[in-house]
């Protein structure tokens, strides 16, 4: 047997294996980067910000009403938001609760929900008239 030739083949096997491993690593890095940037692009940040605006400004205009009137208007908003989001195949909701005091609402809690095929988002905010939501 030609030992020199065999050594050559063994070394070329080692080099080929290293090259294959590096190319797989390179390809995985590219795919990971593409998927990360795509995820950032498709994340519905504008829809979620819009829900926060509805919670903060849309419901805030009902402050001063009695609790029953506040909840009636907030429920109307919630139903319409759910219906409008449903035509896009997405679940979006703004649910007000813990509105106080009963005579004239000054503060309320609100739960934001956004559920699509790729994202599930929920957040609770506490809002007070004149102070905004946290």
């Amino acid at each position: 047997m030609n030992e020199k030739g065999q050594m050559l083949i063994i070394f070329s096997l080692i080099v080929a294996t290293i090259l294959a491993a590096l190319s797989v690593l390179h390809a995985q890095n590219i795919l990971a980067g593409m998927q990360t940037s795509r995820t950032l692009m498709v994340f519905p940040k504008d829809e979620i910000r819009n829900l926060k605006t509805i919670a903060e400004e849309g419901l805030m205009q009902f402050c001063g009403l009695s609790v029953d009137q506040f909840y009636e208007r907030a429920d109307n908003v919630s139903k319409q938001v759910r219906r409008l989001y449903s035509q896009r195949g997405v679940y979006g909701d703004v649910v007000a609760y813990f509105a106080t005091p009963s005579g004239g609402v000054e503060c309320y809690n609100v739960k934001l929900v956004y559920i699509s095929g790729e994202v599930k988002y929920e957040e609770n905010l506490q809002c007070c008239e004149g102070r905004g939501c946290v």
């Binding site: 294959a20 190319s23 390809a27 590219i30």
Partner: peptide
């Protein structure tokens, strides 16, 4: 040896074109 080199070249170019 030639098969190994072929597999490496194929893997390299196929992966980077996804």
């Amino acid at each position: 040896a030639s098969l190994l080199l072929l597999i490496v070249v194929y893997t390299f170019f196929q992966s980077s074109l996804v």
